Simulated assay, not measured.
Amino acid sequence: MRFILNVIWLVLCGLWMAIGYVIAGLVCCVLIVTIPFGIASFRIASYALWPFGRTTVERRDAGAGSLIGNVIWIVFAGWWLALGHIFTGIALCCTIIGIPLGIANFKLIPVSLMPLGREIVSTDEAFGRW
Rank of each mutant, 00 (worst) to 15 (best):
L83C: 11
A18S: 08
A62V: 08
P51Y: 12
C29Q: 09
F52N: 00
W130C: 08
Y21Q: 00
R59S: 11
F3N: 10
C93P: 07
V11R: 10
I103P: 04
I72Y: 02
D61Y: 05
I72D: 00
M1E: 06
D124G: 07
F52T: 01
R59C: 12
L67W: 05
C13E: 02
V22A: 05
C29A: 14
V7Q: 12
C13M: 13
S66L: 01
L49M: 14
W16M: 13
V30W: 05
I86Q: 02
V57W: 11
I19K: 14
I35A: 08
V75A: 11
I4H: 06
P51S: 11
I19L: 15
L31H: 05
R54F: 13
G38F: 01
M114I: 11
G98A: 11
G63A: 03
I103A: 13
M114C: 14
N6W: 08
L101K: 02
R54Q: 06
T95W: 02
L101F: 12
C93R: 06
L81E: 08
T34N: 04
I72C: 07
A45I: 00
L108M: 15
L5M: 05
W73K: 00
I23A: 14
L49D: 07
W130S: 12
E125T: 15
E58G: 10
G63D: 00
I4F: 15
G38T: 07
I23L: 15
P115K: 04
